[in-house]
């Protein structure tokens, strides 16, 4: 089946995007990423050691940019200025790579997005030639504004980052998928496989997650579960579910020929 996820003109087979944080070591990161089947992998940009720890292993040695589409994020940024600065560094780090994940947070307790700063940063980044996949709230009006600015994917939260609370407002996500033409990717809040399947059944183009995999008792097994859930949810969406009915007037088995029937 030719059902690719297309972001900024590039096609991907996997609709599951994964983060690389919170794993116990690089070996586990690599195994989980491989089990997830993800092709787009988020990374963070942080200060390097400045000589105090020579020979420190590098994440990019185990997740080579030639094999994965790396998506540098702006996690930890609370202003448009810091987010833009971080992504300019990321572009230099990754040899001119322009596909990025913008997130501007509102406060450290909730990590809820600050949409005012997010919109300001998105405008600057799009003007500078970045292809911006944007983390945002599940507000359909803001989602549409971010699309109009030129973002290449809209990534609303299902619930708070790292909360694992699942999809708290499926109706808003559906409003967004109906209004926005670019891919809508649920980013944040997924806790287990059924959450990912529900996001896909709602018509989302993909799901991005980190803690749901890294925070599982067995991350590699959960990565594989998420892969299957995203695929199952996507297929169910494409298949079109049966309507919900309070009572079924139509049993699945024939109504005629029932033994002991008094009707015919």
């Amino acid at each position: 089946m030719n059902d690719k996820l297309v972001i900024a003109g590039k096609s991907y087979n996997s609709r599951l995007l994964v983060g690389t944080g919170k794993y116990k070591d690089f070996a586990e990161t690599k195994a989980a990423v491989e089990a997830s089947g993800a092709e787009i992998i988020t990374i963070a940009i942080r200060r390097s050691n400045i000589g105090q720890n020579p020979g420190e292993p590098s994440l990019l040695e185990i997740l080579p940019p030639a094999r994965y589409t790396l998506l540098p994020n702006t996690a930890g940024c609370y202003s448009a200025e810091d987010a833009v600065r971080t992504l300019r560094l990321a572009r230099e780090l990754l040899d001119g790579h322009t596909l990025v994940k913008l997130e501007v947070l509102g406060d450290p307790q909730s990590l809820y997005p600050n949409v005012i700063e997010t919109i300001a940063a998105a405008k600057t980044l799009v003007a500078e030639g970045f292809q911006v996949m944007v983390y945002t709230s599940d507000d359909p009006i803001i989602a549409k504004q971010l699309e109009d600015i030129g973002c290449v994917a809209i990534m609303p939260l299902a619930s708070l980052i790292g909360s694992g609370m699942g999809i708290l407002n499926p109706w808003n996500l559906q409003l967004i998928t109906e209004r926005v033409q670019v891919p809508v990717i649920v980013d944040a809040g997924v806790g287990t496989a059924s959450d990912a399947a529900i996001a896909m059944e709602l018509g989302c183009a993909g799901v991005l997650m980190n803690t749901a995999i890294a925070g599982a008792q067995q991350p590699v097994l959960m990565a594989s579960a998420m892969k299957q859930a995203v695929e199952a949810g996507r297929s169910a969406f494409l298949a079109g579910r049966m309507p919900k009915k309070l009572y079924s007037a139509s049993p699945s088995s024939p109504t005629a020929g029932i033994i002991g029937s008094t009707r015919n």
């Binding site: 983060g19 944080g21 794993y23 988020t42 560094l89 780090l93 980052i161």
Partner: peptide, 10 residues
């Protein structure tokens, strides 16, 4: 000066 690298993140 700021010197940065890629690290794991979500």
């Amino acid at each position: 000066l700021e010197v940065v690298i890629a690290v794991g993140g979500g």
